[in-house]
């Protein structure tokens, strides 16, 4: 946020005859965020979101920790769905316009729930053990099928899973054995 702005200002300053950038897209984004915050602050009754954050922590730790398998992860994904549902009806007390930590944490949790789902999808589909991620149901590393990056995109409000090949550098990948 800080450096992006400095860099952008510098680019505009140093490019000869640079056209004045279009501000409307940015202002539009600011307005829609502002409206979103207004709506959040108006919510009065419902579960306080802090407990959802605690529950998300437990789910991610217990269901997507170092040792995992298909069944527990499926349970975990289901739990994330329930947490999203609870989150959509949750609220907090702080209505103050400045230094509103509760609001920041609320927005953070919204993003964390999305990322949790992304992590869950990628982990369930990766039917192998790699690095420190140990799948009890697939104990071995599987370069043939999974030497690739998991890419998850948001399409029409839904998460879509894809893969991208790994760019191999100077070293051939090999299993770490201890």
């Amino acid at each position: 946020m800080v450096f992006g702005r400095i860099v952008a200002d510098k680019i505009i300053e140093e490019i000869p005859n640079a056209e004045k950038p279009e501000t409307e897209p940015v202002m539009g984004a600011v307005r829609s965020m502002h409206n979103k915050i207004e709506t959040i602050l108006q919510r009065d009754d419902g579960e306080k979101f802090f407990s959802i954050k605690t529950d998300l922590t437990v789910t991610m730790q217990e269901k997507f920790g170092i040792f995992r398998d298909n069944d527990t992860m499926k349970e975990g994904l289901h739990e994330i769905g329930q947490l999203k549902e609870r989150f959509s009806k949750s609220c907090f007390n702080n209505k103050e316009p400045t230094y509103n930590h509760a609001l920041i944490q609320f927005l953070e949790l919204e993003a964390m729930l999305k990322i949790a789902e992304v992590v869950a999808m990628g982990a369930i589909e990766r039917r192998e053990s790699r690095g420190s991620h140990k799948r009890n149901d697939y104990p071995d590393r599987d370069d043939e099928n999974f030497l690739k990056h998991t890419i998850i995109n948001m399409k029409d409000g839904k998460l879509v899973l894809n893969y991208k090949p790994v760019k191999l550098g100077m070293f051939k990948p090999k299993e770490r054995v201890y």
């Binding site: 306080k48 930590h101 509760a102």
Partner: peptide, 11 residues
């Protein structure tokens, strides 16, 4: 304190 008593404490 923020989570259990008063979520308006700022720091």
């Amino acid at each position: 304190l923020q989570q259990n008593f008063d979520d308006s404490i700022a720091f």
